[in-house]
Design a protein around this nucleic acid. Structure first.
Lengths: 211, 211
DNA sequence: TAGATTGTTAATCGATTAACAATC
DNA sequence: TAGATTGTTAATCGATTAACAATC
């Protein structure tokens, strides 16, 4: 009941990028950095960096700047990646496989516990070490494995129904790759990845540069 | 030298979503729609819809609303998807395969002309009808096939170098799936798809709902 | 014509940048 | 201590919403 001021989504969108740059700084052995130096690297204003960070607390020190490792850890807490999250992938097509096979997510604590598909030809097949399961196991699996996040890498026709199923089974958040809006209750978290919209924005920029 | 007012990226981000809803309306046989009706469906304000569209012209008619098909076509022109774009995929892993196998992009005029990888074990292998090519063919292929867009589905270590190569060969725009910033000349268009950042935003929302 | 709804101007709200006192 | 740089307030800029005259 303390933290009442709402953080804008513009700030949240930038946090993972700060996190990435700080991680790279750690790797190159940098121990401290000022908002000015970071702003040069990231091509944003130093003022914005300080404002953004001060939404969450005073992580720096006057006259010194920021301790890179400390700030990195603090941002990881803010982003909720200081702990693990159990996750499933629904849809074992190429995109689902890509998510399973990418080590990037596991490295950040997003643990893929199961992969599901409705194609019975895939039954008992594996993606890496992970067996592909059929949809009739979905609800029980979510409950038994305390799954928080479901990634939907399925066609848009199936998305709304599957979304409802996983939410009813207890999933808190959906990472939606299907090209549709899911229209779920307000308290369900949805993060959309609409690749074709991304490609259209790219196309817009091409079209409007040649004027 | 007429169109000088810069369109904000907030507007551009929304255009593909309008386009998607209008497409669905066409499919369900709806011929006209008012900004109010569309605003109810899309959960944005009617005022925003009218403001957004009027950046590009007066597409509606007082007392009537908007002709769905006409508006759809006009937005497709704005987005530059009223013509085809030649594209290549660099990186034939799962993600690259997912892009090649998805019909969605071809449907919108993004034609995948080639797939490249540096793994010689993949030489002469195919993804669907498309043969995987080695990186030494990259530059010539881009020139010979008038490639406009290169999707980079490769590890971040390789991304900056490959980006430079494709740009030097004549690519206008990069669809970057590698988790790094590319630092290219200003006139090169870059559209980033940073999946792990998307997942961190989701994680942030989980972490900050349980307060 | 009367009613509906746009196009557009004005008002509000929010986000970014600038400035500087506080302080390490 | 003097210099550097944060944290934070104030100023600016931009985006969203409201309102309504224009007009189909």
């Amino acid at each position: 009941m303390e933290e009442t001021k709402k953080i804008s989504s513009a700030v949240i969108r930038r946090l993972p990028r700060y996190y990435r740059y700080l991680g790279e700084l750690i790797e190159s052995g940098v121990q401290r950095i000022s908002s000015k130096e970071l702003s040069d690297k990231m091509k944003v204003t130093a003022s914005q960096i300080r404002q953004d960070l001060n939404n969450f607390g005073g992580f720096g020190q006057q006259g010194y700047g920021y301790n890179v490792k400390y700030l990195y850890d603090e941002i990881s807490k803010i982003l909720g990646i200081d702990r693990t999250h159990n996750m499933i992938i629904v849809g074992a097509g190429n995109l689902g496989q890509a998510l399973v096979n990418s080590g990037d997510f596991a490295k950040r604590g997003f643990l893929i516990k199961g992969v599901f598909d409705n194609n019975s030809a895939l039954k008992n097949k594996k993606i890496g070490a992970l067996e592909i399961r059929m949809m009739d196991e979905l609800t029980a699996f979510i409950r038994d494995n305390e799954i928080e996040i479901a990634a939907l890498t399925i066609p848009k026709q199936a998305a709304k129904e599957v979304a409802k199923t996983v939410v009813d089974a207890g999933v808190k958040a959906i990472w939606n790759f299907a090209h549709t809006d899911l229209n779920l209750p307000e308290d369900v978290i949805v993060e959309n990845v609409h690749l074709s919209e991304s490609l259209m924005r790219l196309s817009y920029t091409i079209a409007n540069k040649e004027e």
